[in-house]
Design a protein around this nucleic acid. Sequence first.
RNA 1: GGGCGCUUAGCUCAGUUGGUUAGAGCACUUCUUUUACACAGAAGGGGUCGGGGGUUCGAGUCCCUCAGCGCCCACCA
Length: 928
Amino acid sequence: MTKQELPKAYDFKSTEPRIYAMWEAGGFFQPHNDPNKPGFDPNVEPFVISIPPPNVTGELHLGHAMFVSVEDLMIRYHRMKGYSTLWVPGTDHAGIATQLMVERDLLQKEEVTREELGRDEFVKRTWEWKHKYGNIITNQIRRLGASCDWSRERFTLDDGLSRAVREAFVRLYEKGLIYRGPRLINWSPGLKTAVSDLEVEYEEEDVTLYYFKYMLAGRGGSRSAPPEYIPVATIRPETILGDTAVAVHPEDERYKKYIGKTVIVPILNREIPVIADEYVSMEFGTGALKITPGHDPNDYAIAQRHNLPIISMLDKEAKVNENGGKYQGQDRFEARKNMWADMKKAGLVIKEEPYRTTIPRSQRGGEIVEPMISEQWFVKIESLAKAGLDAVRDGRIKIVPERFEKIYFNWLENIKDWCISRQLWWGHRIPVWYCPDGHMTVTREDPTQCAACGSKEIRQDDDVLDTWFSSGLWPFSTLGWPQQTADLKYFYPTTYMETGYDILFFWVARMIMMGLEFTGEIPFNTVYLHGTVRDQFGRRMSKTKGNGIDPLWVLDGAPVEALPDYAQKQYPKGLPAMGTDALRFTLLTAGSPGNDLNLNLERVESNRNFANKLWNIGRFVINAIDGLGDQRPKASLQSPTSNYTLADSWIWAKLQQLVRDVERNFQNFQYGQAGQQIYDFIWSDFADWYVEIAKEQMKSDDTRTSTVETLARVFDTCLRLLHPFTPFVTEEIWGHLRSSILQSSLSRLARDWTPALIVAKFPQPRQPEGWEEAKVADFELIQEIVRSIRNLRAEKNVAPSKKIPATIISGERVDLLKAQSPIIATLAGLDQSQISNLKFLQDKPADSASLVIGSVEIYLPLAGMVDLSGEKSRLEKELKEAESHIARLEKLLSSDFAGKAPPALVQKERDKLAGYKDTAEKLKTQLK
RNA sequence: GGGCGCUUAGCUCAGUUGGUUAGAGCACUUCUUUUACACAGAAGGGGUCGGGGGUUCGAGUCCCUCAGCGCCCACCA
């Protein structure tokens, strides 16, 4: 292979697809220890994540980008650690969402409704849709660098998972944990299906509160006794049609006398009783409550207590039914208007007033949900919930961040039976058959006759199951359950469950309950929850608000007109393409676990710059290696205490500290911290200091090869540490680095390297050896000297290109400074040939500006450039600063701090104080 | 009505067993086309860590309290 010049800028556009293809072709996404393949070793520890399956009709949004970034990070880290790592991908059939989308499409393109098409044809069309568009989302997820094992990809409606759903349903049924019956459920009139409690969202809205009279029955009234009535308030006057009682508080003096009497339902003129129930609040409204058991959960409960009849007055489209008299056929809101008008005419109206209350709306359709009595299937949840609670309480499952455990407990402790039937066509059909006699047959295989009476006239239940029923089985159904497959045996329970906190109840809690119920094991041992990605002002991204950022814009760039308003202002020329790594690194480091993240596009830009920086550091290191030619290492690096330069020792010590910090942060799920630390090390320590010093060290034959070796080894470690965060750019550079090293005289370094970084070994932390602290302190002194000189030069406007002479005086540190003088000279722009010998001087050179750093004095003879009076005030300022430090530290050290703080800490402060005292002394002498 | 989170530099945010001159990115000022990088380098300015109280030798960090913002859960018509 011939060496080719690497371009100045990292080209992520051409690199990313090439690298991804290489990974996939190399089989790196598959677990290295596969139970289905020869040579399987059951003792190798697996690490498994099941992907939160995106909706098969979905398109990539930042929520996907977030979970892919975090999960791929977890996966890549563990893969590099040597675990047999499996990330199971797949998609969800997403009942309502998909059905709606296909319905809309059919209506638009063919002007047919699903009812016109019929169930079988509609389902067929939906499958066609799935086959056509179902891979869009998975391809988009590939673009994010997801290292899923695509050979194990699953779909919630595929044959295997359908069998799992069937098995789960039948088992629950046989155990008596599934029942069917008429209950008050949330009905979505737009979607014409039941929805679960979780699928209803409550929002505060301005409505009208209507006050009216419930006239007492049998009292027409007369001149002596005006007609009596009970005033009642409601926000839904049309539900009067379904009223079966009026309730008052038993202690309410105003209404006590009416208890047991009857009142007349307006317009319908039905008679209903006045009952007493403590639920009614005497303070609120009129203190009297109309009871509509058929359309209100509270009223339903009261009706049960008092054995009241239940009247349904709405049909499936929320139109008034035959129980609504003259209003039959009217929409609920139309009926409300008409009813109220009629009541006005009848003189039954008291007043209307504006009112603010929470209104239940369907999460999907957005229309107001109507509580209705309906025949539905339910899961008896109590025992499942208890098991789910125990698993987290006793620590078998850990939730990160921990505060979500409390939320989880609270929800499960108050959970109600789960309505699992949906009146949809797209989904797992409920495996129950009915015969004309009403017997139910519930079986794993489709029956041909009724299990009870043998009737051949059986008909399957029309309903399908809630989508979350199948997603609840996901961690084990994707591994083959209910069959005891090799995958299930080895990879289950899975390891982490990573997802957004917004589906803790929908999904996570149900997986825990169902996992425990069906497999007898926890489905995963850790739940890690990330936050929601919002726009840079903290607003939820939404299509209607038009403030959403499409991840693909961030990857590929976008024309200005595609962007939301605020971004148009920021990027009048359009959004530049920034690549996957930049987006991933931003999502991983810009926030903290469990908290929402406001995506700042400028931050993505800076991370694109980071990728480019990395690329260029790589070019430098590779050039340095190539530049060695066949020059044999003079003496290989031995130990930091023998032939390392100070800079070598320093960067090595800092790197080892970094590896330890990163490891600790990974263990604590502090990925953002880890990423930030790697970023800082690479940019601020390695590039800004070590690379610059390396240029100097490479000039000398004595240190040339050892410097290149250090560059190569440190950079290699950086790439490994960073790979889970920014997989593409690190893989690309590492490949170049690897081949350069193998062709160089340093080839021994890379001899055991893997073919690709994705499967390279993650750096192992090592304990400090004891020398580190002193070397780091020494190097930091050099840094401080360099910074001080640079600072002075900038202040005095010395041209950067101008090399200036210097005299450095130091007592105790003379050896260190002598050794480091070439580096100080290079970095600070000193004329090396004119650096005075380090020595003890009694007098400072004339016409010099001076710097004092502890015991070190530096004189820069800037004759003609230095204004001496200004010089004096500068030194006075420095003295003042030093003295304020001295005062602060003396106060600190004379307080209880000295006695009570850890001795090492106290000593550190004492040393600092001594340094400042030294500085102050020297400054004072100079000022004289 | 319960519960949770947030409030740190102009903006967006880190800051996990409390450790002493509080960090990053962007923005800002000055300088530099120095042979890895101008998507860069060097130097700098900018914060009484929302208010108040407490614990402690020491508090952005722990406790109490108040305020503002956001979220979740909850059947007051």
